[in-house]
């Protein structure tokens, strides 16, 4: 892993709503290293998509970045004007959407949609753009790209549409690819093929990838490092191994416990309660009310990041030297045991 290519520092994003201000992102810090895949995991409403929209400057008009920096290539993206983003989007940072069904313009031929960026930004001729588009379509694994070039999105299956979206995202050779739940809308068999494709493309195109998902199975397949987000904050980050084998934050425990696997016999664990209303973020640790290991201080004061290892940090008071020793939940202990055995077996 090389140098840092993108750095998000203390990012805060608020939404103006009818009833008040929603604090969607509350001080997020992370770094994306060149050539790595960073997964951001969290449930709906944890602020992961908002973070990526802030990076691309496509936040909705009622959202405002209240503080923080997004550093890319010596520039702070939060300070850029809309027109300065034109040279960043597509060319430096690209986005793959969650729902390929609605991401493509339904009444425009897919070829044209791929060519559009090439023609507008690279000023290619129609023939050059077509050649490049067909090559891209081949790259992302679309059979008979020449024929498919002049078809409409509704003539494609979900997986094929997502491939088109990926081809569009890669058209201008970006440095960073943000995948916002790219497989959520697809069925499972297609999911793994798209994930493999993204992995291959990452190598071929020398990409750094931010992968947004709520699916830990996906994380295990694609990610090098993981940030776990809850209620607009990152609560734990580390390498995939750190997060899967030595999770330190109770929220990560809960997430891992609620993921079914082939050996799940008992009733699947679910996290009690609901995420907090971000219009009134709770005092202290936002996860405390749903956390069976919560201590008094969790309701009073927000935990800082404690170092677990050089690569692994978690924001929970349980890691404070004075905190009582807490055992991992039993379900999780068994699961980690199984995962380790599988890994050794493999």
């Amino acid at each position: 892993m090389g140098e840092t290519i993108l750095k998000v520092k203390d990012l805060r994003v608020n939404f103006r709503a009818w009833a008040g201000t929603v604090q969607a992102v509350r001080g997020v810090n992370f770094e994306l290293k060149k050539g790595e895949t960073l997964a951001i995991v969290g449930e709906s409403g944890s602020g992961k998509s908002v973070t990526t929209k802030a990076i691309l400057g496509i936040l909705p008009s009622n959202a405002r970045i209240t503080s923080g920096e997004i550093l890319y290539d010596g520039k702070d993206l939060t300070k850029l004007k809309e027109k300065d983003f034109y040279s960043i989007r597509g060319k430096h940072i690209s986005l793959v959407f969650q729902d390929p069904l609605s991401a493509l313009n339904p009444i425009q031929k897919v070829g044209k949609q791929i060519c559009e960026a090439l023609r507008k930004n690279e000023h290619m001729t129609a023939a050059e753009a077509k050649k490049r588009a067909v090559a891209l379509m081949e790259d992302v694994g679309i059979p008979e790209p020449e024929t498919k070039f002049s078809q409409y999105p509704f003539q494609f299956s979900g997986g094929m549409r997502q491939r088109i979206v990926i081809a569009i995202a890669l058209a201008l050779n970006p440095k960073i690819l943000i995948c916002d739940e790219p497989t959520t809308a697809l069925d499972v068999t297609i999911q793994s093929r798209i994930l493999d494709k993204i992995k291959d493309l990452k190598e071929e195109h020398d990409l750094s990838v931010i992968f947004i998902t709520h699916d830990l199975g996906v994380v295990a397949t694609v990610a090098d490092r993981v940030c776990v987000m809850y209620a607009g904050k990152i609560v734990e980050y580390g390498t995939v191994d750190d997060i899967f084998y030595e999770p330190a934050h109770p929220y990560t425990w809960a997430l891992l416990s609620s993921m079914p696997d082939l050996d799940t016999r008992e009733k699947l664990f679910s996290i009690p309660g609901a995420p907090p209303n971000m219009m009134y973020p709770p005092k202290g640790d936002a996860f405390a009310p749903r956390n069976r290991y919560a201590m008094e201080i969790d309701f009073e004061q927000e935990p800082p990041f404690f170092k677990v290892s050089d690569t692994h940090y978690a924001a929970t008071w349980l890691l404070h030297p004075k905190a009582p020793k807490v055992e991992l939940p039993e379900v999780l202990r068994h699961r980690i045991q199984r995962m380790k055995e599988e890994r050794e077996g493999a």
């Binding site: 496509i58 909705p60 034109y86 989007r89 597509g90 690209s94 959407f97 609605s102 493509l104 201008l172």
Partner: peptide
């Protein structure tokens, strides 16, 4: 204007 394909059009580098 609020559709995903509009967002995609912007993320692929088209001006507003």
């Amino acid at each position: 204007l609020n559709s995903d394909y509009m967002l995609l059009a912007r993320t692929k580098g088209l001006t507003r």
